[in-house]
Design a protein around this nucleic acid. Structure first.
Lengths: 255, 255
DNA sequence: TCGGTACGTTCGAAATTTCAGACGTTGTCT
DNA sequence: AGACAACGTCTGAAATTTCGAACGTACCGA
Protein backbone atom coordinates (compact mmCIF):
# COMPACT_ATOMS: atom_id res chain seq x y z
CA UNK A 1 0.00 0.00 0.00
CA UNK A 2 1.42 3.38 -0.97
CA UNK A 3 2.09 6.10 1.53
CA UNK A 4 -0.67 8.39 2.72
CA UNK A 5 -0.86 12.11 2.08
CA UNK A 6 -1.02 13.89 5.44
CA UNK A 7 -2.27 17.18 4.02
CA UNK A 8 -5.27 15.40 2.58
CA UNK A 9 -5.85 13.46 5.76
CA UNK A 10 -5.89 16.64 7.79
CA UNK A 11 -8.25 18.35 5.40
CA UNK A 12 -10.67 15.46 5.51
CA UNK A 13 -10.35 15.26 9.27
CA UNK A 14 -11.54 18.83 9.47
CA UNK A 15 -14.42 18.02 7.16
CA UNK A 16 -15.43 15.18 9.41
CA UNK A 17 -15.70 17.44 12.41
CA UNK A 18 -18.88 18.61 10.77
CA UNK A 19 -20.40 15.13 10.89
CA UNK A 20 -20.92 15.58 14.57
CA UNK A 21 -24.37 16.70 15.59
CA UNK A 22 -22.76 19.36 17.78
CA UNK A 23 -21.71 21.05 14.56
CA UNK A 24 -25.15 22.53 13.88
CA UNK A 25 -23.74 25.96 14.65
CA UNK A 26 -20.67 25.23 12.57
CA UNK A 27 -17.14 25.77 13.77
CA UNK A 28 -15.01 28.88 13.95
CA UNK A 29 -11.41 28.70 12.82
CA UNK A 30 -10.01 28.83 16.38
CA UNK A 31 -12.37 26.06 17.42
CA UNK A 32 -11.15 23.87 14.61
CA UNK A 33 -7.60 24.60 15.68
CA UNK A 34 -8.17 23.56 19.27
CA UNK A 35 -10.20 20.48 18.43
CA UNK A 36 -7.71 19.18 15.89
CA UNK A 37 -4.61 20.43 17.65
CA UNK A 38 -3.26 21.82 14.40
CA UNK A 39 -1.38 25.13 14.23
CA UNK A 40 -3.47 28.21 13.63
CA UNK A 41 -1.89 29.07 10.31
CA UNK A 42 -2.35 25.56 8.98
CA UNK A 43 -6.00 25.49 9.93
CA UNK A 44 -6.59 28.71 8.08
CA UNK A 45 -4.96 27.36 4.97
CA UNK A 46 -6.94 24.15 5.07
CA UNK A 47 -10.21 25.91 5.74
CA UNK A 48 -9.57 28.35 2.90
CA UNK A 49 -8.98 25.40 0.61
CA UNK A 50 -12.14 23.63 1.68
CA UNK A 51 -14.13 26.80 1.20
CA UNK A 52 -12.59 27.47 -2.20
CA UNK A 53 -13.65 24.01 -3.25
CA UNK A 54 -17.18 24.42 -1.82
CA UNK A 55 -16.81 21.65 0.73
CA UNK A 56 -17.33 24.24 3.41
CA UNK A 57 -19.11 27.55 3.40
CA UNK A 58 -18.04 30.52 5.48
CA UNK A 59 -20.87 32.47 6.98
CA UNK A 60 -20.27 36.09 6.18
CA UNK A 61 -21.36 37.67 9.43
CA UNK A 62 -20.26 35.26 12.13
CA UNK A 63 -17.27 33.92 10.25
CA UNK A 64 -18.26 30.40 11.22
CA UNK A 65 -17.86 27.48 8.85
CA UNK A 66 -20.59 25.12 7.71
CA UNK A 67 -20.80 22.18 5.35
CA UNK A 68 -20.95 23.23 1.70
CA UNK A 69 -22.84 22.23 -1.36
CA UNK A 70 -20.18 19.94 -2.73
CA UNK A 71 -20.56 17.38 0.05
CA UNK A 72 -24.27 17.32 -0.66
CA UNK A 73 -23.61 16.61 -4.31
CA UNK A 74 -21.15 13.85 -3.53
CA UNK A 75 -23.49 12.28 -1.02
CA UNK A 76 -26.28 12.19 -3.55
CA UNK A 77 -23.98 10.80 -6.21
CA UNK A 78 -23.16 7.98 -3.80
CA UNK A 79 -26.81 7.40 -3.06
CA UNK A 80 -27.68 7.23 -6.72
CA UNK A 81 -25.10 4.58 -7.37
CA UNK A 82 -25.68 2.32 -4.42
CA UNK A 83 -28.63 0.07 -4.92
CA UNK A 84 -29.00 -0.34 -1.19
CA UNK A 85 -29.97 3.28 -0.82
CA UNK A 86 -32.36 3.44 -3.73
CA UNK A 87 -33.99 0.06 -3.28
CA UNK A 88 -33.76 0.25 0.50
CA UNK A 89 -35.74 3.46 0.55
CA UNK A 90 -38.39 1.94 -1.66
CA UNK A 91 -38.80 -1.15 0.44
CA UNK A 92 -38.66 0.75 3.70
CA UNK A 93 -41.57 2.78 2.43
CA UNK A 94 -43.55 -0.32 1.59
CA UNK A 95 -43.02 -1.81 5.01
CA UNK A 96 -43.73 1.42 6.80
CA UNK A 97 -46.98 1.80 4.86
CA UNK A 98 -47.89 -1.72 5.91
CA UNK A 99 -47.27 -1.44 9.64
CA UNK A 100 -47.00 2.31 10.23
CA UNK A 101 -43.87 2.02 12.31
CA UNK A 102 -40.38 3.38 11.76
CA UNK A 103 -38.31 1.30 9.36
CA UNK A 104 -34.54 1.46 8.96
CA UNK A 105 -32.07 -0.02 6.53
CA UNK A 106 -28.49 -0.04 7.73
CA UNK A 107 -25.09 -1.37 6.89
CA UNK A 108 -21.93 -1.94 8.82
CA UNK A 109 -19.03 0.52 8.87
CA UNK A 110 -16.38 -0.74 11.21
CA UNK A 111 -17.97 -1.14 14.64
CA UNK A 112 -20.86 1.13 13.73
CA UNK A 113 -24.11 0.93 11.88
CA UNK A 114 -24.77 3.57 9.25
CA UNK A 115 -28.38 4.10 8.28
CA UNK A 116 -28.87 4.10 4.54
CA UNK A 117 -32.61 4.60 4.44
CA UNK A 118 -35.25 5.47 6.96
CA UNK A 119 -38.98 5.97 6.97
CA UNK A 120 -40.61 7.43 10.06
CA UNK A 121 -43.85 6.11 11.42
CA UNK A 122 -46.66 8.61 11.15
CA UNK A 123 -47.07 8.30 14.92
CA UNK A 124 -43.82 10.16 15.40
CA UNK A 125 -41.60 8.86 18.18
CA UNK A 126 -38.24 10.52 18.45
CA UNK A 127 -35.54 8.10 17.38
CA UNK A 128 -31.81 8.42 17.65
CA UNK A 129 -31.06 7.46 14.10
CA UNK A 130 -31.08 9.48 10.90
CA UNK A 131 -29.86 8.63 7.44
CA UNK A 132 -26.08 8.81 7.33
CA UNK A 133 -25.83 8.75 11.11
CA UNK A 134 -23.85 6.08 12.90
CA UNK A 135 -24.59 4.15 16.07
CA UNK A 136 -22.58 1.44 17.83
CA UNK A 137 -23.60 -1.81 16.16
CA UNK A 138 -23.83 -3.77 19.39
CA UNK A 139 -26.52 -1.44 20.70
CA UNK A 140 -28.98 -1.88 17.86
CA UNK A 141 -31.00 -4.66 16.29
CA UNK A 142 -29.81 -3.57 12.85
CA UNK A 143 -26.24 -3.79 14.03
CA UNK A 144 -26.55 -7.12 15.78
CA UNK A 145 -28.15 -8.61 12.67
CA UNK A 146 -24.99 -7.56 10.84
CA UNK A 147 -22.16 -8.40 13.21
CA UNK A 148 -23.71 -11.81 13.82
CA UNK A 149 -22.49 -12.79 10.36
CA UNK A 150 -18.91 -11.61 10.72
CA UNK A 151 -16.10 -14.11 11.02
CA UNK A 152 -14.60 -14.71 14.45
CA UNK A 153 -11.48 -12.84 13.44
CA UNK A 154 -13.48 -9.81 12.33
CA UNK A 155 -15.49 -9.85 15.54
CA UNK A 156 -12.34 -10.09 17.60
CA UNK A 157 -10.95 -7.08 15.73
CA UNK A 158 -14.06 -5.01 16.43
CA UNK A 159 -14.46 -6.10 20.05
CA UNK A 160 -11.11 -7.01 21.60
CA UNK A 161 -11.75 -9.52 24.38
CA UNK A 162 -10.38 -7.12 26.93
CA UNK A 163 -12.26 -3.87 26.57
CA UNK A 164 -15.89 -3.09 27.31
CA UNK A 165 -18.68 -2.54 24.83
CA UNK A 166 -20.06 0.85 23.92
CA UNK A 167 -23.34 1.71 25.54
CA UNK A 168 -26.15 4.14 24.72
CA UNK A 169 -28.74 3.35 27.38
CA UNK A 170 -28.81 1.44 30.67
CA UNK A 171 -30.13 -1.53 28.72
CA UNK A 172 -27.34 -1.63 26.13
CA UNK A 173 -25.41 -4.89 26.18
CA UNK A 174 -22.14 -4.33 27.98
CA UNK A 175 -21.13 -7.93 28.59
CA UNK A 176 -19.16 -9.53 25.79
CA UNK A 177 -20.35 -13.06 26.61
CA UNK A 178 -23.95 -11.89 26.53
CA UNK A 179 -23.38 -10.31 23.13
CA UNK A 180 -21.78 -13.45 21.72
CA UNK A 181 -24.67 -15.55 22.98
CA UNK A 182 -27.16 -13.26 21.26
CA UNK A 183 -25.17 -13.32 18.04
CA UNK A 184 -25.23 -17.12 18.02
CA UNK A 185 -28.99 -17.05 18.46
CA UNK A 186 -29.29 -14.49 15.63
CA UNK A 187 -27.30 -16.71 13.30
CA UNK A 188 -29.60 -19.60 14.18
CA UNK A 189 -32.90 -17.78 13.78
CA UNK A 190 -31.96 -15.13 11.24
CA UNK A 191 -33.56 -12.54 13.50
CA UNK A 192 -32.23 -9.89 15.83
CA UNK A 193 -34.10 -8.13 18.63
CA UNK A 194 -33.43 -5.09 20.71
CA UNK A 195 -35.16 -3.85 23.83
CA UNK A 196 -34.44 -0.21 24.57
CA UNK A 197 -30.74 -0.73 23.98
CA UNK A 198 -30.25 2.27 21.73
CA UNK A 199 -33.32 4.36 22.54
CA UNK A 200 -35.18 4.01 25.82
CA UNK A 201 -38.68 2.55 25.56
CA UNK A 202 -38.26 1.49 21.95
CA UNK A 203 -37.95 -2.12 20.82
CA UNK A 204 -36.76 -3.34 17.44
CA UNK A 205 -36.70 -6.42 15.29
CA UNK A 206 -34.22 -6.77 12.46
CA UNK A 207 -33.32 -9.29 9.76
CA UNK A 208 -30.24 -9.58 7.53
CA UNK A 209 -30.21 -8.68 3.83
CA UNK A 210 -28.06 -10.75 1.49
CA UNK A 211 -26.59 -9.81 -1.86
CA UNK A 212 -26.35 -11.95 -4.98
CA UNK A 213 -23.46 -13.89 -3.50
CA UNK A 214 -25.27 -14.67 -0.31
CA UNK A 215 -23.14 -12.34 1.80
CA UNK A 216 -24.89 -10.29 4.47
CA UNK A 217 -24.55 -6.68 3.38
CA UNK A 218 -27.29 -4.85 5.24
CA UNK A 219 -30.24 -5.33 7.50
CA UNK A 220 -33.77 -4.06 7.82
CA UNK A 221 -35.42 -3.20 11.10
CA UNK A 222 -38.76 -2.11 12.49
CA UNK A 223 -38.62 0.16 15.52
CA UNK A 224 -41.66 0.15 17.74
CA UNK A 225 -42.36 2.11 20.93
CA UNK A 226 -42.82 -0.33 23.79
CA UNK A 227 -46.41 0.88 24.21
CA UNK A 228 -47.27 -0.58 20.84
CA UNK A 229 -44.69 -3.39 20.83
CA UNK A 230 -46.79 -5.38 23.25
CA UNK A 231 -49.85 -5.18 21.03
CA UNK A 232 -48.49 -7.90 18.80
CA UNK A 233 -46.43 -11.01 19.44
CA UNK A 234 -42.68 -10.41 18.97
CA UNK A 235 -42.80 -12.97 16.19
CA UNK A 236 -45.14 -10.76 14.23
CA UNK A 237 -42.81 -7.78 14.35
CA UNK A 238 -39.95 -10.04 13.40
CA UNK A 239 -41.94 -11.26 10.42
CA UNK A 240 -42.38 -7.70 9.21
CA UNK A 241 -38.61 -7.19 9.33
CA UNK A 242 -37.89 -10.55 7.79
CA UNK A 243 -40.25 -10.02 4.87
CA UNK A 244 -38.68 -6.61 4.20
CA UNK A 245 -35.19 -8.06 4.34
CA UNK A 246 -36.17 -10.85 1.99
CA UNK A 247 -37.68 -8.45 -0.49
CA UNK A 248 -34.58 -6.28 -0.41
CA UNK A 249 -32.37 -9.33 -0.76
CA UNK A 250 -34.16 -10.44 -3.87
CA UNK A 251 -33.94 -6.95 -5.36
CA UNK A 252 -30.20 -7.18 -4.81
CA UNK A 253 -30.19 -10.49 -6.65
CA UNK A 254 -29.98 -12.96 -3.81
CA UNK A 255 -30.71 -16.66 -4.33
CA UNK B 1 -7.21 35.12 2.14
CA UNK B 2 -4.62 32.58 3.22
CA UNK B 3 -2.82 30.31 0.80
CA UNK B 4 -4.42 27.17 -0.50
CA UNK B 5 -3.16 23.65 0.16
CA UNK B 6 -2.50 21.99 -3.21
CA UNK B 7 -2.40 18.48 -1.81
CA UNK B 8 -5.90 18.91 -0.49
CA UNK B 9 -7.08 20.51 -3.71
CA UNK B 10 -5.78 17.60 -5.71
CA UNK B 11 -7.38 15.06 -3.42
CA UNK B 12 -10.73 16.78 -3.65
CA UNK B 13 -10.35 17.12 -7.40
CA UNK B 14 -10.04 13.37 -7.62
CA UNK B 15 -13.11 12.97 -5.45
CA UNK B 16 -15.05 15.22 -7.78
CA UNK B 17 -14.28 13.06 -10.76
CA UNK B 18 -16.83 10.73 -9.25
CA UNK B 19 -19.58 13.33 -9.47
CA UNK B 20 -19.71 12.78 -13.16
CA UNK B 21 -22.40 10.39 -14.33
CA UNK B 22 -19.78 8.60 -16.42
CA UNK B 23 -18.31 7.41 -13.14
CA UNK B 24 -20.91 4.70 -12.61
CA UNK B 25 -18.22 2.11 -13.28
CA UNK B 26 -15.79 3.93 -11.08
CA UNK B 27 -12.29 4.85 -12.09
CA UNK B 28 -9.10 2.83 -12.15
CA UNK B 29 -5.92 4.40 -10.86
CA UNK B 30 -4.42 4.84 -14.35
CA UNK B 31 -7.62 6.49 -15.52
CA UNK B 32 -7.48 8.95 -12.68
CA UNK B 33 -3.88 9.68 -13.58
CA UNK B 34 -4.64 10.45 -17.22
CA UNK B 35 -7.77 12.48 -16.49
CA UNK B 36 -6.10 14.62 -13.85
CA UNK B 37 -2.67 14.70 -15.45
CA UNK B 38 -1.04 13.93 -12.10
CA UNK B 39 1.99 11.64 -11.80
CA UNK B 40 1.23 7.98 -11.28
CA UNK B 41 2.86 7.74 -7.90
CA UNK B 42 1.01 10.78 -6.62
CA UNK B 43 -2.32 9.42 -7.76
CA UNK B 44 -1.71 6.20 -5.90
CA UNK B 45 -0.87 8.05 -2.73
CA UNK B 46 -3.93 10.24 -2.95
CA UNK B 47 -6.21 7.33 -3.77
CA UNK B 48 -4.80 5.32 -0.88
CA UNK B 49 -5.52 8.24 1.41
CA UNK B 50 -9.06 8.65 0.19
CA UNK B 51 -9.67 4.93 0.60
CA UNK B 52 -8.14 4.90 4.08
CA UNK B 53 -10.53 7.66 5.05
CA UNK B 54 -13.55 5.92 3.46
CA UNK B 55 -14.18 8.63 0.91
CA UNK B 56 -13.51 6.07 -1.77
CA UNK B 57 -13.85 2.33 -1.82
CA UNK B 58 -11.62 0.05 -3.83
CA UNK B 59 -13.39 -2.84 -5.44
CA UNK B 60 -11.45 -5.95 -4.59
CA UNK B 61 -11.70 -7.80 -7.87
CA UNK B 62 -11.54 -5.11 -10.52
CA UNK B 63 -9.37 -2.74 -8.55
CA UNK B 64 -11.61 0.13 -9.57
CA UNK B 65 -12.49 2.94 -7.22
CA UNK B 66 -15.99 4.04 -6.22
CA UNK B 67 -17.42 6.64 -3.87
CA UNK B 68 -17.31 5.59 -0.25
CA UNK B 69 -19.59 5.74 2.73
CA UNK B 70 -18.10 8.88 4.20
CA UNK B 71 -19.32 11.11 1.37
CA UNK B 72 -22.79 9.72 1.93
CA UNK B 73 -22.61 10.61 5.58
CA UNK B 74 -21.39 14.11 4.89
CA UNK B 75 -24.05 14.66 2.27
CA UNK B 76 -26.76 13.64 4.67
CA UNK B 77 -25.30 15.79 7.42
CA UNK B 78 -25.52 18.73 5.04
CA UNK B 79 -29.09 17.83 4.13
CA UNK B 80 -30.12 17.65 7.75
CA UNK B 81 -28.78 21.08 8.50
CA UNK B 82 -30.05 22.97 5.51
CA UNK B 83 -33.67 23.91 5.89
CA UNK B 84 -33.98 24.18 2.15
CA UNK B 85 -33.46 20.47 1.74
CA UNK B 86 -35.72 19.37 4.57
CA UNK B 87 -38.51 21.85 4.04
CA UNK B 88 -38.07 21.81 0.29
CA UNK B 89 -38.66 18.09 0.16
CA UNK B 90 -41.77 18.44 2.26
CA UNK B 91 -43.26 21.18 0.14
CA UNK B 92 -42.28 19.52 -3.10
CA UNK B 93 -44.23 16.50 -1.93
CA UNK B 94 -47.27 18.61 -1.17
CA UNK B 95 -47.24 20.23 -4.57
CA UNK B 96 -46.60 17.00 -6.39
CA UNK B 97 -49.51 15.37 -4.59
CA UNK B 98 -51.67 18.28 -5.65
CA UNK B 99 -50.85 18.32 -9.37
CA UNK B 100 -49.14 14.98 -9.94
CA UNK B 101 -46.29 16.48 -11.90
CA UNK B 102 -42.56 16.54 -11.21
CA UNK B 103 -41.53 19.22 -8.74
CA UNK B 104 -38.01 20.52 -8.20
CA UNK B 105 -36.38 22.79 -5.67
CA UNK B 106 -33.06 24.19 -6.75
CA UNK B 107 -30.45 26.72 -5.77
CA UNK B 108 -27.67 28.48 -7.58
CA UNK B 109 -24.06 27.32 -7.51
CA UNK B 110 -22.02 29.54 -9.77
CA UNK B 111 -23.51 29.33 -13.24
CA UNK B 112 -25.33 26.12 -12.45
CA UNK B 113 -28.48 25.04 -10.72
CA UNK B 114 -28.18 22.30 -8.12
CA UNK B 115 -31.34 20.44 -7.29
CA UNK B 116 -31.93 20.19 -3.56
CA UNK B 117 -35.20 18.27 -3.62
CA UNK B 118 -37.19 16.51 -6.24
CA UNK B 119 -40.44 14.62 -6.38
CA UNK B 120 -41.28 12.70 -9.50
CA UNK B 121 -44.71 12.69 -11.01
CA UNK B 122 -46.36 9.30 -10.85
CA UNK B 123 -46.71 9.48 -14.62
CA UNK B 124 -42.98 9.08 -14.96
CA UNK B 125 -41.33 11.13 -17.66
CA UNK B 126 -37.60 10.88 -17.79
CA UNK B 127 -36.07 14.15 -16.62
CA UNK B 128 -32.49 15.27 -16.77
CA UNK B 129 -32.29 16.37 -13.19
CA UNK B 130 -31.64 14.45 -9.99
CA UNK B 131 -30.99 15.66 -6.49
CA UNK B 132 -27.43 16.92 -6.24
CA UNK B 133 -27.09 17.13 -10.00
CA UNK B 134 -26.24 20.38 -11.72
CA UNK B 135 -27.55 21.93 -14.93
CA UNK B 136 -26.66 25.24 -16.61
CA UNK B 137 -28.90 27.82 -14.98
CA UNK B 138 -29.75 29.59 -18.22
CA UNK B 139 -31.30 26.41 -19.63
CA UNK B 140 -33.84 25.84 -16.88
CA UNK B 141 -36.82 27.63 -15.40
CA UNK B 142 -35.44 27.03 -11.91
CA UNK B 143 -32.17 28.61 -12.97
CA UNK B 144 -33.67 31.58 -14.71
CA UNK B 145 -35.83 32.32 -11.68
CA UNK B 146 -32.57 32.54 -9.71
CA UNK B 147 -30.19 34.42 -11.98
CA UNK B 148 -32.92 36.98 -12.65
CA UNK B 149 -32.28 38.30 -9.15
CA UNK B 150 -28.52 38.58 -9.36
CA UNK B 151 -26.86 41.98 -9.57
CA UNK B 152 -25.59 43.14 -12.93
CA UNK B 153 -22.03 42.59 -11.80
CA UNK B 154 -22.76 39.02 -10.77
CA UNK B 155 -24.52 38.34 -14.05
CA UNK B 156 -21.63 39.78 -15.99
CA UNK B 157 -19.27 37.52 -14.06
CA UNK B 158 -21.32 34.42 -14.87
CA UNK B 159 -21.98 35.32 -18.49
CA UNK B 160 -19.17 37.47 -19.92
CA UNK B 161 -20.64 39.58 -22.72
CA UNK B 162 -18.36 37.93 -25.22
CA UNK B 163 -18.83 34.20 -24.92
CA UNK B 164 -21.87 32.08 -25.82
CA UNK B 165 -24.33 30.49 -23.44
CA UNK B 166 -24.34 26.81 -22.58
CA UNK B 167 -26.99 24.78 -24.33
CA UNK B 168 -28.68 21.46 -23.62
CA UNK B 169 -31.27 21.24 -26.39
CA UNK B 170 -31.95 23.03 -29.68
CA UNK B 171 -34.37 25.24 -27.77
CA UNK B 172 -31.92 26.36 -25.07
CA UNK B 173 -31.40 30.10 -25.05
CA UNK B 174 -28.09 30.87 -26.73
CA UNK B 175 -28.52 34.58 -27.31
CA UNK B 176 -27.41 36.76 -24.44
CA UNK B 177 -29.83 39.59 -25.31
CA UNK B 178 -32.71 37.14 -25.35
CA UNK B 179 -31.70 35.85 -21.95
CA UNK B 180 -31.47 39.34 -20.47
CA UNK B 181 -34.91 40.19 -21.85
CA UNK B 182 -36.39 37.10 -20.23
CA UNK B 183 -34.69 37.88 -16.93
CA UNK B 184 -36.20 41.37 -16.91
CA UNK B 185 -39.63 39.86 -17.49
CA UNK B 186 -39.03 37.35 -14.69
CA UNK B 187 -38.13 40.14 -12.28
CA UNK B 188 -41.33 41.93 -13.25
CA UNK B 189 -43.69 39.00 -12.99
CA UNK B 190 -41.91 36.87 -10.40
CA UNK B 191 -42.31 33.89 -12.71
CA UNK B 192 -39.98 31.98 -15.00
CA UNK B 193 -40.93 29.69 -17.85
CA UNK B 194 -39.07 27.14 -19.89
CA UNK B 195 -40.10 25.39 -23.08
CA UNK B 196 -38.01 22.31 -23.79
CA UNK B 197 -34.79 24.21 -23.05
CA UNK B 198 -33.28 21.59 -20.77
CA UNK B 199 -35.29 18.50 -21.73
CA UNK B 200 -37.03 18.15 -25.08
CA UNK B 201 -40.82 18.15 -24.95
CA UNK B 202 -40.97 19.25 -21.33
CA UNK B 203 -42.10 22.68 -20.18
CA UNK B 204 -41.60 24.22 -16.77
CA UNK B 205 -42.80 27.06 -14.63
CA UNK B 206 -40.73 28.30 -11.68
CA UNK B 207 -40.97 30.92 -8.95
CA UNK B 208 -38.33 32.34 -6.62
CA UNK B 209 -38.08 31.47 -2.92
CA UNK B 210 -36.97 34.17 -0.50
CA UNK B 211 -35.36 33.81 2.90
CA UNK B 212 -36.09 35.84 6.02
CA UNK B 213 -34.13 38.77 4.66
CA UNK B 214 -35.98 38.83 1.38
CA UNK B 215 -33.04 37.53 -0.62
CA UNK B 216 -33.78 35.00 -3.35
CA UNK B 217 -32.12 31.78 -2.25
CA UNK B 218 -33.87 29.06 -4.21
CA UNK B 219 -36.70 28.42 -6.58
CA UNK B 220 -39.46 25.90 -7.04
CA UNK B 221 -40.53 24.51 -10.38
CA UNK B 222 -43.14 22.24 -11.89
CA UNK B 223 -42.03 20.24 -14.91
CA UNK B 224 -44.77 19.13 -17.24
CA UNK B 225 -44.55 17.11 -20.45
CA UNK B 226 -45.81 19.20 -23.35
CA UNK B 227 -48.64 16.72 -23.91
CA UNK B 228 -50.12 17.71 -20.57
CA UNK B 229 -48.81 21.29 -20.45
CA UNK B 230 -51.44 22.36 -22.97
CA UNK B 231 -54.24 20.96 -20.84
CA UNK B 232 -54.13 23.96 -18.57
CA UNK B 233 -53.41 27.63 -19.14
CA UNK B 234 -49.73 28.50 -18.52
CA UNK B 235 -50.89 30.78 -15.74
CA UNK B 236 -52.31 27.83 -13.87
CA UNK B 237 -49.00 25.96 -13.90
CA UNK B 238 -47.27 29.14 -12.85
CA UNK B 239 -49.67 29.45 -9.95
CA UNK B 240 -48.74 25.99 -8.75
CA UNK B 241 -45.08 26.96 -8.74
CA UNK B 242 -45.76 30.32 -7.17
CA UNK B 243 -47.83 28.88 -4.35
CA UNK B 244 -45.10 26.33 -3.62
CA UNK B 245 -42.43 28.99 -3.62
CA UNK B 246 -44.48 31.17 -1.31
CA UNK B 247 -45.05 28.33 1.12
CA UNK B 248 -41.36 27.51 1.16
CA UNK B 249 -40.49 31.18 1.58
CA UNK B 250 -42.70 31.48 4.63
CA UNK B 251 -41.21 28.31 6.13
CA UNK B 252 -37.82 29.96 5.73
CA UNK B 253 -39.15 32.98 7.57
CA UNK B 254 -39.79 35.41 4.73
CA UNK B 255 -41.85 38.56 5.37
C1' DT C 1 7.58 -20.07 -23.94
C1' DC C 2 8.83 -15.67 -24.71
C1' DG C 3 8.78 -10.56 -25.57
C1' DG C 4 6.07 -6.64 -24.76
C1' DT C 5 3.12 -3.58 -22.34
C1' DA C 6 0.72 -1.75 -18.48
C1' DC C 7 0.45 -1.44 -13.80
C1' DG C 8 1.54 -1.02 -8.70
C1' DT C 9 5.12 -0.11 -5.64
C1' DT C 10 9.50 1.64 -3.73
C1' DC C 11 13.12 5.11 -2.94
C1' DG C 12 15.39 9.35 -2.27
C1' DA C 13 16.73 13.89 -4.10
C1' DA C 14 14.35 18.04 -5.20
C1' DA C 15 10.72 20.97 -4.47
C1' DT C 16 7.15 22.16 -1.87
C1' DT C 17 4.52 22.85 2.07
C1' DT C 18 4.29 23.48 6.90
C1' DC C 19 4.21 26.26 10.84
C1' DA C 20 6.56 29.45 14.44
C1' DG C 21 6.74 33.98 15.09
C1' DA C 22 5.76 38.80 14.08
C1' DC C 23 2.42 42.22 12.74
C1' DG C 24 -1.97 44.69 12.15
C1' DT C 25 -6.74 44.72 13.40
C1' DT C 26 -10.82 44.26 15.98
C1' DG C 27 -13.48 43.91 20.07
C1' DT C 28 -13.72 43.82 25.10
C1' DC C 29 -12.91 44.98 29.73
C1' DT C 30 -11.33 48.23 33.22
C1' DA D 1 -9.51 56.15 26.58
C1' DG D 2 -6.27 52.82 27.19
C1' DA D 3 -4.65 48.22 27.73
C1' DC D 4 -5.32 43.68 26.78
C1' DA D 5 -6.70 39.65 24.51
C1' DA D 6 -8.12 37.10 20.50
C1' DC D 7 -7.93 36.57 15.87
C1' DG D 8 -6.52 36.65 10.82
C1' DT D 9 -2.67 37.22 7.84
C1' DC D 10 2.08 37.23 6.25
C1' DT D 11 6.87 35.59 5.90
C1' DG D 12 10.68 32.58 5.40
C1' DA D 13 13.46 28.85 7.27
C1' DA D 14 12.92 24.07 8.37
C1' DA D 15 10.80 19.92 7.47
C1' DT D 16 8.10 17.38 4.84
C1' DT D 17 6.06 15.76 0.86
C1' DT D 18 6.19 15.16 -4.00
C1' DC D 19 7.27 12.73 -8.06
C1' DG D 20 10.92 10.91 -11.56
C1' DA D 21 12.91 6.80 -12.31
C1' DA D 22 13.71 2.04 -11.49
C1' DC D 23 12.03 -2.47 -10.13
C1' DG D 24 8.95 -6.45 -9.91
C1' DT D 25 4.78 -8.48 -11.40
C1' DA D 26 0.69 -9.67 -14.07
C1' DC D 27 -1.40 -10.04 -18.25
C1' DC D 28 -1.57 -10.38 -23.28
C1' DG D 29 -0.61 -11.99 -27.90
C1' DA D 30 2.52 -14.28 -30.85
Amino acid sequence: MPRLTPALVRGLDILELFLDARAIDGYSAPEVATVTGLPRATVHELLATLVAKSYLRKEKVSGRFHLGLRVFQLGNAYGERIDLVTSGRLIAEEIAAECNETVNVGMLDGPDVVYMAKVESRQAVRMVSAVGRRLPASCTAVGKALIAFLSEAELEALYPSAAGLPSLTPRSIVDRAELLAQLAEIRRSGLAFEAGESTPDVSCAAAPVRDHRGAVVASVSVSVPDIRWGQRAPGEWADVARRGAQRLSSVLGAR
